[in-house]
Design a protein around this nucleic acid. Structure first.
Lengths: 116, 116
DNA sequence: GGCCTAACCTAGGCAGTCTATGTAGTCCTT
DNA sequence: AAGGACTACATAGACTGCCTAGGTTAGGCC
C-alpha cells in the first residue's frame, strides 16, 4: 500500500531519521522505523528497503555513526547515533522543511492553525 | 536546479495545480507555473517537463477540462478549469496533505505556529 | 516572408521509496 | 546440541514523479 507515496514524506526520510536519533539517543534500524510509525500514528510505515539504504547514505555522509550492541532481548543490532555533522545537517534540513511547508501553506491558502 | 527535490513538494504537484485553478479560475499551463512560483516566493519552480505531464494526468482523470483560448497578448493557449470531480479530488487531497503534515510536525517535534 | 517569442509537448534520465528475497545471529525447545 | 523460530540487517530490481534537454506550432511584428 505504500503508506508513503500518498504523502509528503518523499525526500524527508533522512530528516526523520536524524530527528528520531536526536529525540531518543542511539537506536537501531528497526527501532527508528518503529519510532516513526508510532509518532505518526501509523501513517508513515518505513519499509526495510527504504530504511537501510537511508541509514547507509547517512553514514556515508558522516551524519551518523554506529556500533554493534545488544537489544533488550539480547539480539545484536547496529545502534546509530548522531554525529556533530549530523546535528548540523538536522538543523539545516529542519529549516528547509519549514520553509517549504510555509510555501505549501501559502499555496494551499491555509493558516498554520488549520493543520491541527 | 531542482527546487523541488529538496523539499516536501514531491507528490503534491497535482494538488498545487488543482488549488491554483480553484483560486484563480481558468488558467493556461504557463500561468499555473507562474502562480506557483509567485505564491511560493520563487521557492517552487515547476519545469515544463513536470507541468505538462501533470496537466495531462489530471485531464485523463477528469479532474480538469480545457479549451483553446487567447492570452492577453493574443497567443492561443489551453485554458484549464476544474471539473466537479476535480473539486472533490482537491478537497480529498487537501485533507491528506494536512494529515501528513500533522504527522510530520509531530515527528519533527514542532508546533504549527513554529512554521511561520 | 522572416524572425522572435509564447505556449505546448515528449523521450529519456535520475533519485528515493517499495517489493521481494535472502542471510546471519540469538533464543528456545527438545 | 540440533532444529526451528524470530529478529535485525541487507540488496537487487521495479516503480513513481520530477527534471533535463531537446523539440514543434502558432501568433505578433518588422
Amino acid at each position: 500500500m505504500g503508506g508513503v507515496r500518498a504523502g509528503n514524506l518523499y525526500g524527508t526520510l533522512e530528516l526523520l531519521i536524524l530527528k528520531g536519533l536526536e529525540l531518543h539517543g542511539p537506536l537501531h534500524g528497526v527501532a527508528v522505523a518503529d519510532h516513526i510509525a508510532a509518532r505518526s500514528n501509523g501513517l508513515f510505515k518505513i519499509e526495510e528497503g527504504s530504511l537501510y539504504p537511508a541509514l547507509h547514505r547517512l553514514q556515508g555522509k558522516g551524519h551518523v555513526a554506529w556500533e554493534w550492541m545488544k537489544t533488550e532481548e539480547g539480539k545484536r543490532a547496529k545502534y546509530y547515533e548522531l554525529t556533530k555533522a549530523g546535528r548540523r545537517a538536522l538543523k539545516k534540513e529542519m529549516g528547509s522543511w519549514i520553509a517549504n511547508t510555509r510555501a505549501m501553506l501559502s499555496l494551499l491558502d491555509l493558516a498554520p492553525e488549520e493543520v491541527q
